[in-house]
Design a protein around this nucleic acid. Structure first.
Lengths: 211, 211
DNA sequence: ATTTCAACCGACAGGTTGTCGGTAGTGCGA
DNA sequence: TCGCACTACCGACAACCTGTCGGTTGAAAT
């Protein structure tokens, strides 16, 4: 039996299944056969839509990142919101990933041991697109006297790189440990930005505890 | 013709060749056939000494890291050296990797695009072993009034994670750009540690410009 | 109804990892 | 000096994986 779908629809279907399989078994251990069997399509069909397995991975990263980057941008550009809230909000948008309710359990596993490649590609995208955005935000904070950062871009890079890798394997941490780690991260972020102590922590609490 | 070597000797030989091939072509693209052909041994011989390709990678990481960690430890424990110099020295020992003159050109390529897995495994080792060491050093600095770090361990983690990933693809940077990036990193490190400005930069210059 | 085109199929080539029964040096005790 | 045991070594082989390619079929346009 042969089912025909529009290219776009089929591509999304492939990405959905591949994303789940890569997260479950890792990029290397999940085979293209796994993908096509789960969907019920032939080998040729997969390669009609994507020219290689790696291209599928790239498309997944692209999809994930463009979603969360769009979310972050929306927050960043909303000048009605106070600056600290915009920075914090942007981070939340990025680290929550997904944005949509795609499936948190999948994304919990996605940054990790076997998925080194995916993590790498994600970070490239972050460095290229998000760092400049955050950098501008920091400069804005400099102008308003809230921050005192001598190297806004590099500060942004340091914060983003760390937050993207440090909280990877944090499933095995107890909630208290995780909380402590986040607190330390915020503290150091304030130092890096030359911000007043607790200034960011306050914004986070405000957002988390329902505005 | 059949050449017999001691297990230890053969293992080292395999690791040497594999390390070079992985660096050149990446872990995935370098095949076990490449390794055995280059050495001139049979398939079974390779798997007599290592039970999988990944185990070879692990052994390479183990070898590299134990070398550079040993170097870093030596510097850290040498209490005759001033504290800042010990911290900086430990970092140099780690980032120069190798320690021995193993072959700089190989190591320049080793942290990178295709070698995501290796990078990952390296970082795990860094987090597990080096962070506590640096953490202690920071505490010592706190006691001597040189640093004012509220979270020594987390500070160490942030510094190490960043330095291990940020300077990865920095071949494509001009020397000036690279220097600027390093300078910013030092600056931020001082902020994170609550150290006086230029205190670390001074130590680095002292070491680099021949003591 | 016919043409055209894109989605789809599945056999196949070429390459990869890991296994396994067997072989041959090497060192040690008799 | 002979024999025995141990271990490094060998290479054919199974199982799997990715990417290709000529051919097929459904659907939309003419």
């Amino acid at each position: 039996m042969r089912t025909v779908k529009s290219a776009e629809e089929r591509k999304e279907e492939i990405l959905d299944v591949a994303e789940q399989l890569f997260a479950e078994k890792g990029f290397d251990n999940a085979s293209t056969n796994d993908i096509i069997n789960k969907i019920g399509i032939a080998r040729g069909t997969l390669y009609h839509h994507f020219s290689s397995k790696e291209e599928i991975l790239d498309a997944i990263v692209e999809r994930m990142m463009s979603r969360s980057i769009a979310g972050a941008k929306a927050v960043i550009k909303d000048t009605r919101i106070p600056l600290t809230d915009r920075i914090v909000g942007a981070f939340l948008a990025l680290n929550m990933d997904s944005g949509a309710g795609a499936g948190a359990e999948v994304l919990e596993q996605i940054h990790k041991p076997q998925n080194a490649l995916l993590h790498q590609k994600t970070q490239e995208r972050l460095l290229g697109e998000v760092v400049p955005l955050i950098g501008e935000l920091i400069e804005e904070g400099n102008r308003s006297g809230m921050f005192h950062s001598q190297y806004p871009l590099e500060a942004a890079e340091m914060i983003i790189v760390y937050s993207n890798t440090a909280f990877d394997g944090s499933e095995e941490l107890t909630p208290e440990q995780k909380m402590a780690k986040i607190k330390a991260f915020i503290y150091h972020t304030e130092k890096i930005l030359g911000a007043e102590e607790k200034s960011l922590e306050g914004a986070i609490m405000k957002i988390i505890t329902g505005r």
